[in-house]
């Protein structure tokens, strides 16, 4: 399932990059279905990066400092919610600058 989520995420990124918003509705719907199935998908783009974030695998460019930000998300963070318990299913793969 994580692979399907990753592909949809990649598709979403690609469309945003091409400024194509005609299909947003359908992508949102797919995300909604993922959520209904118990997956919480987090796109940490733009967030300040802290080393304590164990839900992402960071490739750090230059020096890590307080100003370091997540500038690119190659794979999203995926959590799975089951019986009200949340657990990390996939670490996000990000670039930090």
């Amino acid at each position: 399932m994580t692979e399907i989520i990753n592909q949809v995420f990649a598709l979403d990124l690609k469309m945003k990059k091409d400024n194509n918003d005609s299909l947003n509705r359908y992508v949102d719907r797919i995300y909604h279905e993922f959520e209904a199935m118990g997956f919480q998908i987090v796109n940490p783009i733009g967030q300040a990066y802290r080393n304590e974030m164990t839900d992402v695998e960071a490739n750090i460019i230059g020096d890590l400092s307080r100003k370091s930000k997540i500038t690119k998300v190659l794979k999203p963070v995926i959590y799975q919610v089951e019986n009200n318990e949340t657990r990390l299913l996939q670490k996000g793969i990000v670039i930090v600058e």
């Binding site: 080393n51 974030m53 164990t54 839900d55 963070v77 959590y79 318990e85 949340t86 990390l88």
Partner: peptide
């Protein structure tokens, strides 16, 4: 540590 695995202070 956050129990879902998303945070660890070290």
């Amino acid at each position: 540590m956050r129990r879902d695995g998303g945070y660890d202070s070290g």
